[in-house]
Simulated assay, not measured.
Amino acid sequence: MAQKSLKQLAARNKSTLNRTLFLTIGIHAFFVLTRIFFRPFTRSSLIKYILLSTPSWLIQFWFERMARPTHDAQTGELRRAGEDLEAQGMTEWMWDVLYWTYGCLVLVAVAGEAAWWLWAGIPLYSAYLAYTTFTGAKKSMAGLAGAGSPDQGHATGSKRQQKMEKRGQKVQYR
């Protein structure tokens, strides 16, 4: 039972990557087939498809490289379990981009060329995440900077001290 958690991570990564690969191939095949049979490719639609689906292929490739478990060819032992695909931060954002691209491809295949504009949601969402991350970091840094000042200590006393001040009683700070 050595490395049980690594083996579980490897199994989870393998199933997630296989499912994602089949989903990616299926959605792109659906898009191309609907374009061939119902709405023929024009030069601009082909350029949009290549340009806007490239990030999903790059993310798929990146997930394969960083998270696909590797085994020893001779013994079958697990060499590397891969990175956790359920990690927060950048990995989570990449999953969002991948799923949003899937949705856009399906909508473009079904509804038409105007649905490409939905892809603009990705940069807007990224800007929103960057802004909230920056403001959150800014607030936490402001809290660290003001922790040592004597003015801040008076306002951030214990609840008991704040209640006593509210009632007008004198509170002595040490």
Rank of each mutant, 00 (worst) to 15 (best):
S15M: 04
S15P: 01
S15L: 07
T16P: 00
T16Y: 05
T16M: 07
L17W: 00
L17Q: 03
R19Q: 05
L21V: 04
L23P: 00
T24V: 03
T24K: 06
T24W: 10
T24S: 12
G26F: 01
G26N: 10
I27C: 04
H28P: 02
A29R: 08
F30Y: 09
F31M: 08
V32M: 10
V32H: 06
T34D: 11
T34G: 07
I36S: 10
I36Q: 08
F37H: 12
F37G: 07
F37N: 11
F37I: 12
R39C: 03
F41H: 09
T42V: 01
T42N: 04
T42C: 05
T42A: 04
L46H: 05
L46Y: 07
I47K: 06
K48A: 11
L51A: 14
L51D: 09
L51T: 15
L52N: 12
L52K: 11
S53R: 12
T54L: 15
T54S: 15
P55I: 07
P55V: 10
P55H: 08
S56E: 14
L58N: 11
L58A: 12
I59R: 01
I59C: 03
Q60H: 14
F61M: 11
F61E: 09
F61G: 07
E64Q: 14
E64C: 12
R65L: 15
M66E: 14
M66R: 15
A67I: 15
A67G: 09
R68D: 05
R68K: 15
P69R: 00
T70I: 09
H71V: 13
D72A: 07
D72M: 02
A73C: 05
A73D: 15
Q74M: 08
Q74A: 14
L78R: 08
L78C: 02
L78Q: 02
L78T: 06
R79S: 07
R79T: 08
R80K: 08
R80H: 09
R80N: 15
A81Y: 00
E86N: 15
A87D: 11
Q88R: 14
T91M: 13
T91I: 14
E92C: 13
W93G: 04
W93P: 00
W93Q: 09
W93K: 06
W95A: 05
D96S: 12
D96R: 14
D96C: 11
L98D: 00
L98I: 04
L98Q: 12
Y99R: 11
Y99F: 14
W100Y: 07
L105Q: 13
V106H: 10
L107Y: 12
V108I: 09
V108E: 10
V108A: 06
V110R: 03
G112T: 01
G112I: 03
E113T: 07
A115L: 04
W116I: 01
W116S: 00
W116Y: 07
L118T: 06
I122E: 03
I122D: 01
I122R: 04
P123F: 13
Y125S: 09
S126N: 11
Y128A: 05
L129C: 09
Y131M: 04
F134Y: 13
T135L: 01
G136W: 04
G136C: 04
K138E: 10
K139Q: 11
K139N: 07
S140W: 08
S140N: 10
M141N: 12
M141C: 06
